[in-house]
Amino acid sequence: MKKLLSVKNAVVSVAVLIGIWQIAYMVSDYSDALFPSPYQAFLALIEMITDGTLAENIGTSMFRFSIGYISSVVVAVFLGLILGRLPGVFKYVNPALQLLRPISPTAWMPFIVLLFGIGEVPAIVIIFIAAFFPVLLSTVAAVNNIDPVYLKVASNFGIKQPALTWKFILPAAFPQIANGIHLAVGTAWIFLVAGEMVGAQSGLGYQIIDARNNIRADILLATILVIGVIGIILDGILKFAEKKILKAWGGAE
């Protein structure tokens, strides 16, 4: 019942969005090339699917996204586990993190392009930065939040590092870390597009720039929709994984 309701909500919500688009299209007097109708964007989407550019660009973007996001999560969790156990060190690291964190990853873009040139690296680096801070900080917080009884049990049974981390700290902190990993996927996906618009010659972000250069607003809008849909799917996958983890970790059945 709840599922059904949410499907209904989603359909209505998207229909209203497309309705507003259609009305805006009808009342505005831009040319079709600059402001296409939903139907024209749909045709552009079909065109991209049939000529294979969409699949190719999705593949390119997903490759960069996976590398950047996964490596960022691994490094951030690893560092977070260490820093969470070293509050004395974290006290000195934290101010620097707080300084770097509010800087939009896009601000790094020109610098990264200067260093690495246009290509695969800038987009990967920007995704890495986008996911890094939220995952690192949520891992440190998760480690600090561990029920002290686990650490007491570990020391009572003589469990030492590295087993302490693998057997106690990581699993005990994992539900909260998983939440950080889940939230970061959205942020990272947002910045993939920014990264590809500035620092790449391929991928979904580049396709938007390319469409603008060719004055193909229909392709541009269709690509934006695809980016949104992939974002929802990524979030859904991680939400599902997070739920599974919480359940396996003794949360609500």
């Binding site: 049990v153 003589g158 469990i159 699993p171 994992f174 396996a248």
Partner: peptide, 30 residues
């Protein structure tokens, strides 16, 4: 703390991500 003197806590201190037998084996792993 020493493994020769084991403490049992009011809130059990079991590891929720391990099943019963692997909880019991915890101290044997070291």
């Amino acid at each position: 703390p020493s493994v020769k003197n084991i403490t049992i806590f009011q809130n059990y201190g079991l590891l929720p991500w391990r099943n019963v037998i692997s909880n019991v084996k915890l101290g044997l792993e070291a």
